[in-house]
């Protein structure tokens, strides 16, 4: 269900699951656009030499995934804050999944709080986030 206004939202409702594109080509595209194109993000071999399991999805890209997920759910929403905690690396070319749930609704201000969790296939949390989103009252 696409969310248009605050009344469409219920406490505890889940956002549609979002599977972000963590492919090397997409991370490279992001890197070129943002300037975050260090080989740690775009070269598996280089990242392994630094001690990582593979190239890393930049944290800012993971944060961008969270915002995109919110916009897909509520296209007219205005994101007021996204706060992310990076628990473990998100590895390029590895499938991940983001879930989101509404955890607070302020009827007066139109603000909705959302928990966001990015996990890998083993259901291990890699990124935690919370977002404050304004919806038309």
């Amino acid at each position: 269900m696409t969310i248009v206004k605050l009344a469409d939202v219920e406490f505890g409702v889940e956002l549609p699951v979002f599977e972000p594109d963590t492919s090397l080509a997409n991370v490279q595209r992001f890197g070129d656009a943002s300037g975050w194109n260090s080989p740690r993000f775009t070269d598996h071999e280089h990242a392994r030499k630094e001690g990582f399991p593979g190239a890393l999805v930049p944290g800012i890209m993971s944060q961008g995934f969270l915002a995109a997920m919110i916009h897909r759910w509520a296209p007219g929403s205005v994101i007021e804050n996204v706060d992310t905690i990076f628990r473990a690396p998100v590895i390029v070319d590895v499938a991940h999944r983001i879930s989101g749930v509404v955890t607070d609704i302020d009827e007066d201000t139109g603000l909705v709080e959302i928990d966001l969790t990015l996990v890998n296939a083993a259901e291990e949390t890699r990124v935690l986030g919370t977002a404050s989103v304004r919806l038309p009252v």
């Binding site: 505890g12 905690i85 955890t103 607070d104 709080e113 928990d115």
Partner: peptide, 17 residues
């Protein structure tokens, strides 16, 4: 420092879900 949950929302979550 790394907690993002309000206690009231924990309560509401437990009850609602």
């Amino acid at each position: 420092d790394d907690g993002r949950a309000k206690v009231q929302n924990y309560c509401q979550w437990i009850t609602t879900r």
